[in-house]
């Protein structure tokens, strides 16, 4: 039967690389935001000691891991879940779903409404992390885009927003 063939599913190296870069960036930005923004710090303080969560793509990554260390400081813990105790796993069902999220075509709220995310872990912690992600997005993105990404754009003072934004970008890119 010449109408028949078997296909190995290919890979999408560029999309993977893009999502991996974004995850790296967001992970480090969360670490920086926990130092800079009181609300983000408060959210993490409310979570159990050593709390660690991952955000990744099914079936095989990329992934980023963020957790609290012994002193309660929030740390970006890299991309490899191997050997880490993870309390909350947020998984995007496939790479294209992650692309929609990280090109800001779909907000976190829309992605969960469209069932593109699987959350494995305690729900209150997941709620806290979603609020953290929303705040970080507002810092990282220009207002025009961030307004699409979050349900309600916060009414922070302009000066404070810019100051924190610079510090978070600095932290995410240069580890300052």
């Amino acid at each position: 039967m010449n109408e028949y063939k078997e296909i190995q599913s290919g890979s999408k190296p560029f999309k993977r690389a893009y999502v991996a870069l974004m995850l790296w960036f967001v992970g480090r930005a969360i670490e920086a935001a926990a130092r800079v923004d009181a609300a983000v710090k408060a959210e993490f303080d409310g979570l159990s000691p050593g709390f660690t969560f991952s955000l990744g793509v099914m079936p095989q990554g990329p992934t980023m891991i963020v957790g609290k260390d012994d002193q309660g400081l929030v740390r970006y813990r890299g991309w490899d879940p191997e050997g880490q105790k993870i309390d909350l796993k947020m998984k995007v069902k496939n790479l294209e779903g992650a692309i929609l999220m990280f090109t800001f075509q779909e907000s976190t709220a829309m992605a969960s409404a469209r069932n593109r995310l699987i959350v494995d872990g305690e729900v209150p912690a997941a709620c806290a992390i979603v609020r953290v992600l929303d705040i970080v997005e507002v810092y990282l993105l220009p207002k025009l885009i961030a307004k699409l990404a979050v349900k309600r754009y916060p009414d922070w003072s302009f000066g404070e927003k810019i100051r924190n934004r610079i510090r978070i970008y600095g932290g995410a890119i240069f580890g300052l």
Partner: peptide, 13 residues
């Protein structure tokens, strides 16, 4: 209420 997942699906925050 801050810890309940149903809030994700609410139109306004």
């Amino acid at each position: 209420a801050l810890g309940d997942g149903s809030i994700f699906y609410n139109p306004e925050d």
